[in-house]
Design a binder for these strands. Sequence first.
DNA 1: CTGAAAGCGCTTACAG
DNA 2: CTGAAAGCGCTTACAG
Lengths: 344, 344
Amino acid sequence: MGVTIKDVAKRAKVAPSTVSRVIADHPKITQETKERVRRIMDELGYHPNLLARNLVRQSSQTIGIVTKETTKHSLYDPFFPAALKGMGNLLHEKDYSIQLTTGETKEEIYQEVVKMVQGKNVDGIIVLYSRDDDPVLTYLLDCDFPFVMLGKPTVHVNEIMYVDNDNVKAAREITEHLLSIGHRQIAYIGGDLKFEVHKDREQGYREALQMAGVQETLIFRESITKESGEKIVEQLLKMKHRPTAVVTTDELMCLSILSALYAKGLRVPEDIAITTFTDSLISELASPPLTTVNINPFQLGYEAAKSLVELLQDPDMMKRNILVPTSIVTRESCKKITENEAVI
Amino acid sequence: MGVTIKDVAKRAKVAPSTVSRVIADHPKITQETKERVRRIMDELGYHPNLLARNLVRQSSQTIGIVTKETTKHSLYDPFFPAALKGMGNLLHEKDYSIQLTTGETKEEIYQEVVKMVQGKNVDGIIVLYSRDDDPVLTYLLDCDFPFVMLGKPTVHVNEIMYVDNDNVKAAREITEHLLSIGHRQIAYIGGDLKFEVHKDREQGYREALQMAGVQETLIFRESITKESGEKIVEQLLKMKHRPTAVVTTDELMCLSILSALYAKGLRVPEDIAITTFTDSLISELASPPLTTVNINPFQLGYEAAKSLVELLQDPDMMKRNILVPTSIVTRESCKKITENEAVI
DNA sequence: CTGAAAGCGCTTACAG
DNA sequence: CTGAAAGCGCTTACAG
């Protein structure tokens, strides 16, 4: 086996406890001893065995990151790597490691969380989604385990630390943006309402239309595939008052819609305006570049990790929430229209 | 603190060692004792403390995944989540956890790897890239630590277990595909040659042209941004014999090129054909859908993890390599051209 | 088939 | 300022 604290102690002619204190940079050890011990550690190539340290500290200095079950799409959702990077940045700073769930299904992931928590494999958890009836959430609350949610919880809002955008507002604003440049027929393409983010954005869309006195809403909640994009576009084209603008909430879905529109010979933004959410490189590189709600996914991850670390340092802290601001990035996918065009 | 093995032992009136054996499902424990002990474990809500188990076993049942330093682009490269999912799948099956590096720079990542290895925080490592002069690689080889590389190593090829595509062949085949449908002026847009993958693909491109008797090669190695796409397209358009087809090796770069082409009023595939690599959802959803080399990123990750687990089970096993096959997925971004069109 | 004991490699009160 | 000792919660030869 490798070099242990005892080997160092023997060579340095001190007790193992002293070596341990040198590692911890304990203030009551003389500079002299510290230097001597450190030199010997270098000589022997000593590195602390973290497994032993973890056991005695009952802490792994690791944060578990819980994802939702995978779909073909969620795999490629640019939100994930950006948020991951944000969490990684903060956690690296604070000297925590990241452990990722590997399960595919809800049940597998639940079991992993239980194992992480009970096995003391992680000191805290970040849940990367918010959905209805989530056994993971119930479990974490039940055992009072430190965690932060990325997204607004659907229950126990006041007992859970979370980081989110104001998705209602964000969706309202992007819809208002379209209204302000003359659009009246605006379709909305969101997602499954069991996820809080989709509830919020859909509500924001409704609010904006209502406040503008527009009666007609048009909402789609399809899974994100090429086919669903085609299906939606087909439906749009069949309508008497075809929408002049579309709010999508997902960059890949937006690509899918774009693709279907082009296939039908429609031009963006000339024939129809389109907007999306997230603002990864995809929005910038799409043709045309997309007007997008920048939700700052990196910052969301960063703040979630930061809140969790603070919670670990002070378990009794107030369960406060953080709202990461969003902003509209205007690109070429939306065009001002006159009243004439508005009603085709 | 939580329930320990001693609590269970006391209640079940057996020794802690017996409880331990029940957990391990040791064959020499009677069914009767097993059942009794298990019942009590349930009653008390006992879960093994993995930190303690890790210490005595000197193993963390965790695999470290080492990424390369981040760029704005690499963050969104769809290869990463797909490979991650592949690794996760296999590792979940084998009951290993995943620990991810969090560093931003080469130096930070190197330090993390050292800490992972020396601190015994991981049992094995998967390196997600292959580049020249990589201190991480040197270090892992020096301390003879179990690892698998995803990509072909640039040195010590025979001492390293790796999983890769045959990138030379893949690039040759996609270039030959373009040749076979009539293209003669084919540009290539790759990446920094310090990465083995880019060396290989560039070579494949060259080989295909050479074998077809085409003298002229045209190679770009830009970073992946909107601006570099514009720059490249500008250069292409200035040429006397403008290429009729472009091989790109990255889906986001391909989007960038598409975008720049459209901005200049060119049509794909009518005016210029374009192909790419990876085959994530992006290729499918792009406009037009992209002819792509499917490199099976999920499978690459899966096989890498599988090889590593095998290596951990049998440290003396032959350091064999695995080549994951690639295939060309034909979509609408390439059009057959006649000899007339070939020379504009 | 089961138990008593040692030990994994640290950390941390408690003495001095 | 430093050391001796106990202990974190398991596992695993060694006995019987």
